Simulated scan of single mutants.
Amino acid sequence: MMGSRATGAVFSRAARMRQKLQCALEASALDIEDVSYQHAGHAAVKDNANETHFNIKIVSPKFEGQSLVKRHRMVYDLLSDELNSGLHAISIVAKTPKELRSPS
Results as ranks from 00 to 15, higher is better:
residue 71 R to C: 03
residue 16 R to T: 01
residue 92 I to G: 02
residue 25 L to W: 03
residue 76 Y to E: 08
residue 10 V to D: 12
residue 87 L to Q: 10
residue 74 M to A: 13
residue 22 Q to C: 02
residue 84 N to M: 11
residue 100 L to R: 15
residue 11 F to E: 08
residue 38 Q to D: 14
residue 34 D to R: 01
residue 99 E to C: 05
residue 8 G to Q: 13
residue 102 S to G: 05
residue 98 K to N: 14
residue 69 V to R: 12
residue 20 K to N: 11
residue 91 S to P: 01
residue 34 D to P: 05
residue 9 A to W: 01
residue 103 P to M: 13
residue 80 S to N: 10
residue 77 D to K: 10
residue 50 N to D: 09
residue 31 D to M: 11
residue 42 H to K: 11
residue 65 G to W: 01
residue 25 L to S: 03
residue 68 L to F: 04
residue 22 Q to A: 03
residue 20 K to H: 07
residue 73 R to L: 00
residue 53 H to I: 08
residue 94 A to C: 00
residue 51 E to V: 03
residue 52 T to L: 01
residue 41 G to W: 14
residue 21 L to R: 00
residue 15 A to V: 11
residue 79 L to I: 08
residue 30 L to T: 06
residue 49 A to P: 03
residue 61 P to Y: 10
residue 12 S to T: 15
residue 86 G to I: 06
residue 103 P to A: 14
residue 54 F to D: 02
residue 92 I to F: 00
residue 10 V to I: 06
residue 68 L to N: 13
residue 37 Y to G: 07
residue 49 A to L: 04
residue 20 K to I: 08
residue 66 Q to S: 14
residue 72 H to F: 07
residue 6 A to K: 04
residue 46 K to D: 09
residue 2 M to K: 15
residue 80 S to R: 13
residue 16 R to F: 02
residue 72 H to L: 12
residue 41 G to M: 09
residue 20 K to S: 05
residue 27 A to Y: 01
residue 31 D to K: 05
residue 15 A to R: 14
residue 84 N to A: 15
residue 81 D to H: 02
residue 47 D to N: 07
residue 95 K to F: 10
residue 95 K to C: 08
residue 74 M to H: 09
residue 27 A to I: 08
residue 24 A to M: 13
residue 32 I to D: 06
residue 63 F to A: 03
residue 26 E to L: 12
residue 36 S to M: 12
residue 41 G to I: 13
residue 18 R to W: 12
residue 32 I to G: 05
residue 88 H to M: 03
residue 88 H to C: 09
residue 42 H to A: 13
residue 43 A to W: 10
residue 51 E to Q: 11
residue 56 I to V: 13
residue 22 Q to G: 08
residue 21 L to E: 00
residue 100 L to M: 15
residue 65 G to Q: 08
residue 96 T to F: 08
residue 2 M to F: 11
residue 22 Q to M: 01
residue 63 F to K: 06
residue 37 Y to I: 07
residue 37 Y to H: 13
residue 63 F to D: 04
residue 69 V to E: 09
residue 83 L to E: 08
residue 4 S to A: 09
residue 23 C to Q: 14
residue 82 E to F: 06
residue 9 A to S: 04
residue 90 I to V: 15
residue 88 H to G: 02
residue 28 S to V: 12
residue 81 D to F: 12
residue 75 V to R: 00
residue 90 I to Y: 02
residue 46 K to A: 00
residue 66 Q to K: 15
residue 56 I to R: 00
residue 19 Q to H: 10
residue 31 D to N: 14
residue 65 G to D: 09
residue 77 D to Y: 02
residue 19 Q to F: 11
residue 92 I to T: 05
residue 76 Y to L: 11
residue 11 F to W: 08
residue 64 E to D: 15
residue 87 L to K: 06
residue 35 V to W: 04
residue 22 Q to F: 05
residue 6 A to L: 07
residue 50 N to Y: 00
residue 46 K to L: 04
residue 27 A to G: 04
residue 78 L to M: 03
residue 44 A to Q: 13
residue 19 Q to I: 07
residue 5 R to E: 12
residue 47 D to I: 04
residue 67 S to H: 04
residue 68 L to V: 14
residue 96 T to M: 05
residue 37 Y to W: 11
residue 50 N to M: 07
residue 18 R to V: 00
residue 59 V to A: 02
residue 102 S to L: 06
